[in-house]
Design a protein around this nucleic acid. Structure first.
Length: 590
RNA sequence: GCCCACGUAGCUCAGUAGGUAGAGCAUUGCCUUGGUAAGGCAAAGGUCACGGGUUCAAGUCCCGUCGUGGGCUCCA
């Protein structure tokens, strides 16, 4: 994702670092070919076509050479050249030549049509001259050597096209100072510590089995406990917000998917069909057709609308093996899916409600930092432009009413309707796409959906597809990383561990457990023969919110000595008082 | 799917120049009965991902398959 030169204060420095890196690499591989080298979020990269694969040692050497170039304080010289001059200058560089031809046709370096000018320019520092529109720092000395680090090498296709040559991409990062660099590196380390795949194993939440297949999640008891709480909470919230809960099957006949158009346009993402008594069935990649079939079981009056069908619907999509990733990119997942069928005059209210509901649910899980994206009508689309306009206006109005700042992706909507995507930032400031609210002008036509209006005539309803959490799998992954596995009390699979100091206290421990469980708390006793210290350590590593230590003193006082996972020791608290405290915390979902 | 790297005990990893497999944690047993992040001793645990090849000898070298990771692309 390229960054905007006008908005990113690191743009010049990182872009310049990319040029310096290209110089260093070409010095080492004079026959190497260079592609493009833009600044990106947190750093920069440059793509090379080199005679051999780069190893980590090469990065050290390149980085070393970069520091020398930086120390040389070489100025960046800008000049405008004609297309012919440029072609002569880069005659040994086929990728640059392709870029120059593109520039002549008004394309940018990614091959996209660029509305900007078609000026062809270069920047030169020291011995290296690169096709570039800039801007850059004034001289290489302005790139802070101590804020620079090459991170990794990876394969990347020329122009992102798998049919074009695969290049070697070197990722680097560059900051204004060593402190900034170290902060960034700390964030990377912290992200690794929070990685849901790692915590999923350490906290025994879920696994993926080779035997079952990639991208198919096994929810272990503790992960399933959390999922169950999430589902119960959101289901209840849906019922309170005017949704009807439904259940639909995992497979459907081929004819359904022909009608929906999935077999025409989505087949490469579907699991292969299954033959049952001469009829082909497909695992569902989406829930919409099923909800539509429910809609169609009755003739609907304008008075019946809006109808809102919600379901935690498991869907299966064939994702290429290379893209699978933990819980966030899988082949089978459960969407908290709903479809709203409404009259044209209801869409403003419905969209506003859906957005409101979305924000309410996400906030309940401690996610409070949102950014919104509005995607509008693409060139190839179905449905009447009037409807698109009305729908887009409704989306826009809802965003404005909720005082959400949003970016507009002009022409970025799906072919079947405009949409709002909500992204949330987690505790580390990373963005995750969760909620989506999108209109669908395609399926109502394909399934010939109708309602009878006040005029006694059939009309086509508007259909809105929306998910709040996105999928249970991805959302769980986000929760794990957001909380670093230390879930708030209401979500914690084990809310308290009772730690008897000696075996003599086991009986009292059992008594305490019973009372806490009767109060609705999820409690375990650590009956191992380890010492108290080790039991504390174990509960701490499992990120259990409360450790309740029980010895002679507590037994006499009918109390528990409460230790928090923060390390704080609250001392002895009467059992009834502890129950009250925990119940209050659960009710507040903090 | 493609490029690169990786695949050794339940987990995290070590195995130097090919010579026949090791540690810590977890598990089990015995001793220890303790006051806020690891008590001691011992045992058990591995067709070194799978298949083939080179070699007197392969965890180690070569080829293939499967899987995982980092990217590309895509996306809930």
């Amino acid at each position: 994702m390229p960054v905007d030169p006008n908005q990113d204060p690191y743009y010049r420095l990182r872009h310049s670092a990319a040029h310096v890196m290209a110089q260093a690499v070409l010095e080492q591989f004079p026959e190497g070919k260079v592609a493009i080298g833009p600044p990106i979020e947190n750093g920069f990269y440059y793509d090379f076509d080199l005679p051999r694969a780069l190893a980590p040692e090469d990065l050290e050497q390149i980085e070393q050479r970069m520091r020398e170039i930086i120390a040389g304080n070489h100025p960046f010289h800008y000049r405008v050249v004609s297309a012919d001059e440029a072609k002569e200058l880069f005659k040994e560089q086929p990728y640059k030549l392709e870029l120059i031809v593109g520039l002549e046709q008004g394309q940018d370096e990614y091959g996209d049509t660029d509305s900007g000018s078609t000026v062809i320019s270069t920047y030169r520092q020291d011995t290296f001259e690169d096709l570039c529109r800039g801007p850059h720092v004034e001289h290489t000395g302005q790139i802070p050597s101590e804020g620079l680090k090459l991170m990794s090498v990876a394969g990347a296709y020329w122009r992102g096209d798998e049919h074009r040559p695969q290049l070697q991409r070197i990722y680097g990062t560059a900051w204004n100072s060593q402190e900034e660099l170290e902060q960034y590196l700390w964030r990377i380390e912290e992200a690794k510590r929070r990685d849901h795949r790692r915590l999923g194993k350490e906290l025994d939440l879920f696994s993926v089995s080779d035997e079952v297949g990639g991208g198919l999640i096994l929810w272990h008891p503790k992960g399933a406990m959390i999922r169950g709480i999430v589902e119960a909470f959101t289901r209840e919230a849906h019922l309170q917000n005017g949704y009807d809960w439904v259940y639909t099957p995992h497979v459907g006949r081929a004819h359904l998917w022909e009608t929906s158009g999935h077999l025409d346009f989505y087949k490469e993402n579907m699991f292969a069909g299954m033959d049952i008594e001469g009829e082909t069935y497909y695992a569902k990649p989406m829930n919409c057709p099923f909800h539509i079939e429910i809609y169609k079981t009755h003739l609907r009056s304008y008075r019946d609308l809006p109808l809102r069908y919600a379901e935690n619907g498991a869907v299966y999509r064939f994702e290429r093996s290379g893209v699978l990733h933990g819980l966030t990119r899988v082949r089978g997942f459960t969407q908290d899916d709903a479809h709203i069928f409404c009259r044209p005059d209801q869409i403003n209210t419905e969209i506003s409600r859906a957005l409101d509901f979305s924000l309410y649910v996400l906030r309940a899980f401690g996610l409070t930092d949102f950014s919104a994206y509005l995607s509008t009508m693409p060139e190839h689309h179905v449905g009447e432009p009037d409807n698109w306009e009305q729908a887009t206006a409704a989306l826009r109005q809802a965003l404005d009413a909720h005082a959400l700042s949003y970016k507009v992706d002009e022409g970025g909507g799906a072919f079947y309707g405009p949409k709002i995507d909500l992204k949330v930032s987690d505790a580390l400031g990373r963005e995750w796409q969760l909620s989506t609210i999108q209109f669908d002008f395609n399926l109502p036509d394909r399934f010939d959906l109708e309602f009878i209006g006040e005029d006694g005539q059939p009309h086509r309803p508007f259909m809105v597809h929306r998910a709040l959490l996105g999928s249970m799998e991805r959302f769980f992954g986000v929760l794990i990383e957001h909380f670093a596995g230390a879930f708030p009390l209401w979500l914690s699979p084990v809310q308290a561990v009772i730690i008897p100091i000696t075996d003599r206290h086991l009986e009292f421990a059992g008594d305490v457990r019973q009372r806490l469980e009767a109060a609705g708390l999820r409690v375990e006793i650590d009956q191992s023969k380890d010492r108290m210290q080790n039991k504390i350590r174990r509960a701490q590593l499992q990120k259990v919110p409360y450790m309740l230590i029980i010895g002679n003193k507590e037994q006499e006082a009918d109390a528990v000595a409460v230790r928090l996972r923060s390390g704080e020791d609250l001392g002895a608290i009467p059992i009834s008082a502890f129950i009250e405290r925990a119940q209050g915390e659960i009710a507040a979902r903090t």
